[in-house]
């Protein structure tokens, strides 16, 4: 398995980054660091997709001098998909940060442990 992974080093790094982002999302106590971990997960998936579209020895998909031969250009499809994804990642991050402001209004802190305890206490009052 390691021999097969050695030639796909970019994709393997992307998956390791996905794991690091997931660990940051789950283990950190601060809400802002959780959002940073979520962003790391998203960009690692974009790296994986772009690496799948690369073909060795060919150039960027911009037609020059009227040469429309397939031998000269990489696969442009994953690039187009990732372009949409980047902008959606920005929208989701902005929305999550606005939710952080509201959480700070209600609980007074951004520490996940304290928020959990306060939420449990409020629920047990019913």
């Amino acid at each position: 398995m390691l021999e097969a992974l050695r030639s796909n080093y970019i994709e393997a790094t992307a998956l390791i980054l996905f794991g690091i982002g997931l660990a940051t999302l789950l283990w950190e106590k601060n809400l802002i660091k959780k959002i940073i971990g979520f962003n790391i997960m998203e960009t690692s998936i974009f790296l994986f997709l772009t690496a799948k579209g690369y073909i060795a020895g060919r150039g960027a998909p911009i037609i020059t001098d009227g040469i429309t031969d397939v031998e000269y250009y990489i696969n442009p499809l994953p690039s187009a998909i990732v372009l949409t994804g980047i902008v959606i990642a920005v929208s989701i991050t902005a929305f999550m940060l606005a939710l952080c402001l509201k959480i700070y209004d209600i609980y007074g802190t951004l520490d996940m442990d304290k928020i959990t305890v306060m939420d449990m206490a409020e629920r047990s009052e019913d």
């Binding site: 398995m1 097969a4 992974l5 030639s7 796909n8 080093y9 970019i10 994709e11 393997a12 998956l15 390791i16 996905f18 794991g19 997931l22 690496a51 690369y54 073909i55 060795a56 020895g57």
Partner: peptide, 18 residues
Amino acid sequence: IVGVLLLALSQMPQFGDP
């Protein structure tokens, strides 16, 4: 999750293969 994904990656085609 990371283990399963890496296992799946070892079966994928090579990087930059036309």
